[in-house]
Design a protein around this nucleic acid. Structure first.
Length: 331
DNA sequence: AACAACTCCAACCGCGACCTT
DNA sequence: GAAGGTCGCGGTTGGAGTTGT
């Protein structure tokens, strides 16, 4: 905590205060906010009679004084949600906070850095003696935009699999994340694939080698790429930004999707590939018969629906969360 | 009891995005 | 289009409180 600066002396008339807020300052800000509402923060600071910068007032209000804030320790359910959302969103604390009513980004960030990070580290060091696996930090991976890999091992020989995707576009990120939430959790069919070597149950979001197309994979059980056996796996392509338009109703409408199947003679469809030049989805590595129909049907289903932005089904998320193996904090 | 080491978390800082002029 | 102001975000700091020796 920072020391509150002494509020005495002539300098104080011009100098803005820093450091801890006094109860009097809190009261002033609280009264002003409740009576007059937010407005411009520098005006708030001035009109409330506070010798603080607007930024400081904003922070104090958002992180501490807001009446809808939930105080106290995080519940186990909140912890699970934070871990789950962090696995999807990375360090986007404000977006995580938006999904946890009554909690602030600062609070969640502190909680993550002080408690959860440590806990996950302990768990991974207990379960994986291989330091190179357990030390993977998604936030340090330049290709990672926020995904999470539990204990999966990526096969270095497979160049078109990358652990996560890299984009700085917020709308792209929204598209991706909502696609995951809308489809990655609920869709139930299984398509053969082959990108993992001993991948672990979980939801993976991957980027194709062209750096523009993406696919989402849900893996159930282990996958042996060398033997070509796939136990349970789902793959869903996610279109690049160029194919997506956001409507005024806050829906994302995926347009210009034309699923194509090249129709060669292998049994497994290994990926859908989004062709961003022609705005087509191609089913790669060929397919035939029922696989072709199924692939076509699924791509149609996936991309011809409206994807809601911002409406998170917490019940569904919690179902998914409860299946994560790394959420057992009992040890 | 005294000190050191560690943990927690409120608050600050810098930066980028957005808006207004 | 440029400049200036504001807002919001994520990273970092540092002091109070807690735990260990």
């Amino acid at each position: 905590m920072r020391k509150p600066e002494a509020s005495t002396g002539k300098n104080n008339t011009n100098k803005l205060r820093k450091g801890l807020w006094s109860p009097e300052e809190d009261e002033k800000l609280m009264n002003y906010m409740l009576n007059s509402g937010q407005g411009c923060w520098s005006d708030v600071a001035r009109n409330a009679g506070l010798q603080r910068c607007g930024k400081s007032c904003r922070l104090r209000w958002i992180n501490y004084l807001r009446p809808d804030l939930k105080r106290g320790a995080f519940s186990p359910q909140e912890e699970e949600l934070i871990i789950h959302f962090h696995s999807l969103l990375g360090n986007r604390w404000s977006q995580i906070a938006a999904r946890l009513p009554g909690r602030t980004d600062n609070e969640i960030k502190n909680f993550w850095n002080s408690t959860i990070k440590k806990r996950l580290k302990n768990i991974s060091s207990n379960t994986s003696p291989n330091a190179s696996e357990s030390s993977y930090d998604p936030n340090k991976d330049p290709n990672n935009m926020g995904g999470f890999i539990t204990s999966s091992t990526q096969d270095q020989n497979i160049d078109h699999f990358m652990p996560m995707f890299n984009t700085s576009s917020p709308s792209m990120q929204n598209t991706v994340l909502n696609t995951i939430l809308e489809h990655g959790i609920n869709m139930s069919s299984s398509i053969g694939g082959g990108f993992f070597n001993n991948a672990t149950t979980g939801t993976y979001f991957s980027q194709n080698h062209d750096n523009k197309s993406f696919y989402l994979e849900k893996v159930f059980g282990s996958v042996n790429i060398n033997g070509g056996e796939v136990e349970e796996m789902e793959m869903y392509n996610v279109p690049p930004l160029e194919s997506v338009s956001v409507t005024s109703e806050n829906n994302i409408k995926v347009e210009n999707i034309n699923a194509l199947c090249n129709g060669k003679d292998t049994n497994n469809i290994s990926s859908y590939h989004f062709d961003d030049i022609n705005n087509n989805i191609n089913v790669n590595n060929s397919c035939n018969g029922s696989d072709e129909n199924r692939a076509h049907h699924e791509v149609e289903n996936l991309f011809h629906e409206d994807l809601n932005v911002g409406d998170w089904d917490l019940e569904e998320l919690m179902k998914d969360v409860s299946s994560f193996p790394f959420l057992d904090f009992s040890n």
